[in-house]
């Protein structure tokens, strides 16, 4: 049985023979996906229904049981994680924190899934704290996370949706920030970055005008190791870097209502 599996893996062209990692060119997807359309993938009814044993089998061996000694919850969420570059870097930087990527495009999600599985095999006891799920985060954030559950949320290089008519499709908007403020605990941090100046301005002004968020000071930004990763860890960031493009970051802290 084992041999057979190995043999099929050997012949699977989607997996690189040398690194055992999935090959990106077999997971091509369109760059954009309509967040407004009705979704036809399964969604957990509530955060209690999220099966941690599927995502983090080493920490939660039995499905949906409360007997697991581990009471940890997912703390980082990378919204629109793309090919998962940031998650992979964060997994080793915060080895004891559970984190999840959320991505709408199913092929890209499949890629990240394969990538994490391959990394888990080649690096025993590492990358056990990272997972990915295919979902529409703009609709289903409250189905995955309970109130004040998250300590970090990432929005890296989101779809810019230039037309004014389509601004409501943007993943950072005044209304959606209400939902993000609900799942982030006080003191938790929201990270955004883009290479589109107009979108950068938009995200910053949305966050500045929201009563539950305040900007980090320059010293705080300097001291946060995650800020540096925003540019260099993601595939999109690397692409911008290669082309010598500019990036615009906005990093804000969740605060209590004044």
């Amino acid at each position: 049985m084992k041999l057979e599996e190995a043999a099929t893996q050997e012949s699977n062209p989607c997996i690189s023979k040398s690194t055992r990692l999935p090959r990106k060119r077999f997971y091509r997807a369109r760059a954009h996906s309509n967040p407004l359309s009705d979704s036809h993938f399964p969604v957990p009814i509530s955060p209690h229904h999220v099966d941690y044993s599927l995502h983090f089998p080493q920490f939660f061996p039995s499905p949906n049981s409360d007997s697991d000694s581990d009471s940890r919850k997912i703390e980082f969420a990378d919204i629109g994680c793309g090919f998962g570059g940031l998650l992979i870097s964060l997994a080793t930087l915060f080895p004891n924190t559970l984190m999840i990527g959320m991505e709408l495009r199913d092929k890209v999600t499949e890629y990240v899934k394969e990538r994490i599985l391959a990394l888990r095999i080649s690096n025993p006891n590492q990358y056990q704290n990272v997972s990915v799920v295919r979902t529409n985060s703009m609709k289903y954030i409250p189905n995955y996370f309970s109130k004040s559950q998250l300590s970090k949320m990432f929005f890296l290089f989101p779809d810019p949706h230039f037309k004014e008519k389509n601004h409501r499709r943007r993943v950072i908007s005044p209304f959606l920030l209400d939902e993000y403020a609900y799942v982030i605990k006080e003191g938790g941090i929201i990270y955004t970055i883009t290479d589109v100046e107009e979108l950068g301005e938009w995200m910053k002004s949305c966050l500045e005008n929201h009563p539950l968020f305040e900007g980090l000071t320059d010293e705080e930004l300097e001291a946060d190791p995650v800020v540096k990763l925003l540019k260099c860890a993601t595939e999109e960031g690397q692409k911008v870097e290669r082309n010598g493009g500019q990036t615009f970051t906005a990093v804000f802290r969740r605060i209590a209502m004044k």
Binding site: A181, Y182, H210
Partner: peptide, 22 residues
């Protein structure tokens, strides 16, 4: 969705109290 109603609702209701999911 259960949202706190602020004193000045004209500025928007930003604080979500809870979601009743089931």
């Amino acid at each position: 969705r259960v949202t706190m109603l602020p004193k000045k609702p004209i500025d928007g209701a930003h604080e979500i109290q809870s979601y009743c999911l089931g």
